[in-house]
Computed example of a mutant assay.
Amino acid sequence: MTDHERAIIERLRVKPGEHVRLKDRDPRDSSLFGAEQETKTATDAIARDIDVLQDRLYAEGSRALLVVLQGTDTSGKDGTIRTVFNATGPLGVSVTAFGVPTTQELAHDYLWRVHAACPRRGTIGIFNRSHYEDVLIAKVRKLAPKEAVEQRYDQINAFERMLTENGTTILKFMLHISNGEQKERLQERLDDPKKHWKFNPGDLEDRAFWNEYQEAYETMLHRCSTQHAPWYVIPADRKWVRNAAIASIVKATLEEMNPQYPKVSWNPDDFTIA
């Protein structure tokens, strides 16, 4: 791990039990990085490094990496996936976007659909939204009783501990954008016909609960950033900063995992290709 990667992790990681005040964390902070174009170029190189590390992880076939992307509407979950994992081989990466639960999913416990989507050994799994919707929107919109939501923090921690104890490393990224930046991005979707499909009138309803969501995120970060499954608060107003920070942490984590190509039982010198 480089000193720069260590600094990024130290600055952005939520320590277990830490009380996070999102208003004290600048969503436009770029102080961990240099100039924009230089950082974008470096991020492209990191994406290629992630591909090499993922190839080793796939070949090793004994462990997995789960990347959770959680954030308000327009925070950049899709953009993060496109940039950070654009060079990664498709066989070794799965992306799951969690939307409104189906009738079948609602007939099970709230973690049922999540467990089924967890990455198999040898792969990187990416959650676009996640099981944390059940302590965010469920809490703000009162979709579940208060007592049920309260129980879920400990249940989620136990679920994630089970995953880590069975070989899945977990990284959780909260994409932190400002109210003003979200407004601009929503307006851009209205102004650009090519982006109309991205606009959902329901996003405006959620925007009316901005303060309530910020409080719900703060509780989530406080209750569910653990040693085995840490949360990182990523400054996301600047897309290039968001991408660089997440790419750096993913790369450093894979390097710490240090997956290895398996040794074969045969000698390649014993074979001749006709």
Score class of each variant (00 low, 15 high):
residue 46 I to V: 13
residue 219 T to W: 06
residue 241 V to D: 02
residue 157 N to E: 13
residue 111 L to I: 14
residue 230 P to E: 04
residue 203 D to C: 08
residue 74 T to S: 08
residue 237 D to K: 01
residue 153 Y to V: 10
residue 262 P to C: 06
residue 45 A to H: 12
residue 156 I to V: 14
residue 94 S to C: 12
residue 172 K to M: 07
residue 154 D to P: 07
residue 217 Y to Q: 02
residue 191 D to T: 10
residue 160 E to A: 07
residue 192 D to S: 13
residue 221 L to V: 02
residue 68 V to H: 01
residue 171 L to Y: 03
residue 38 E to L: 07
residue 205 E to L: 13
residue 113 R to Y: 15
residue 83 T to F: 00
residue 2 T to M: 12
residue 135 V to N: 02
residue 224 C to M: 10
residue 105 E to A: 07
residue 4 H to W: 10
residue 94 S to E: 10
residue 111 L to Q: 11
residue 39 T to R: 05
residue 10 E to H: 09
residue 268 P to E: 06
residue 181 E to K: 07
residue 134 D to T: 03
residue 232 Y to T: 00
residue 30 S to K: 08
residue 131 H to A: 06
residue 39 T to G: 04
residue 19 H to R: 15
residue 118 C to P: 05
residue 46 I to T: 04
residue 124 I to K: 01
residue 188 E to T: 15
residue 83 T to R: 06
residue 43 T to N: 02
residue 13 R to Y: 01
residue 187 Q to P: 06
residue 201 P to D: 15
residue 33 F to R: 01
residue 126 I to V: 11
residue 137 I to M: 04
residue 80 T to G: 06
residue 107 A to F: 10
residue 214 Q to R: 09
residue 12 L to R: 00
residue 140 V to N: 05
residue 192 D to Q: 13
residue 44 D to N: 13
residue 6 R to D: 15
residue 141 R to Q: 15
residue 41 T to M: 11
residue 247 A to Y: 00
residue 168 T to R: 02
residue 154 D to I: 12
residue 239 K to C: 10
residue 25 R to E: 05
residue 65 L to M: 05
residue 38 E to T: 11
residue 251 K to C: 06
residue 270 D to W: 12
residue 242 R to M: 07
residue 103 T to L: 13
residue 77 K to N: 02
residue 137 I to T: 06
residue 180 G to K: 14
residue 183 K to G: 13
residue 120 R to Q: 14
residue 266 W to H: 12
residue 104 Q to W: 08
residue 19 H to C: 14
residue 202 G to Q: 11
residue 234 I to W: 01
residue 166 N to A: 13
residue 23 K to M: 12
residue 257 M to N: 05
residue 234 I to C: 03
residue 57 L to P: 03
residue 77 K to T: 00
residue 240 W to K: 04
residue 61 G to F: 10
residue 52 V to F: 08
residue 251 K to P: 01
residue 45 A to V: 13
residue 52 V to N: 05
residue 252 A to I: 07
residue 262 P to I: 01
residue 149 V to Y: 02
residue 204 L to R: 08
residue 97 A to F: 09
residue 32 L to T: 08
residue 164 T to G: 11
residue 194 K to F: 14
residue 35 A to H: 14
residue 110 Y to N: 11
residue 105 E to I: 03
residue 248 S to M: 00
residue 238 R to K: 14
residue 31 S to F: 05
residue 51 D to F: 04
residue 46 I to Q: 03
residue 145 P to G: 09
residue 87 A to I: 05
residue 155 Q to K: 15
residue 162 M to W: 15
residue 166 N to P: 03
residue 194 K to D: 15
residue 175 L to R: 00
residue 192 D to P: 09
residue 49 D to V: 00
residue 60 E to P: 01
residue 55 D to W: 09
residue 202 G to L: 09
residue 135 V to M: 04
residue 91 L to T: 15
residue 273 I to A: 14
residue 254 L to Q: 02
residue 168 T to H: 05
residue 67 V to P: 00
residue 235 P to S: 05
residue 219 T to A: 09
residue 101 P to Q: 06
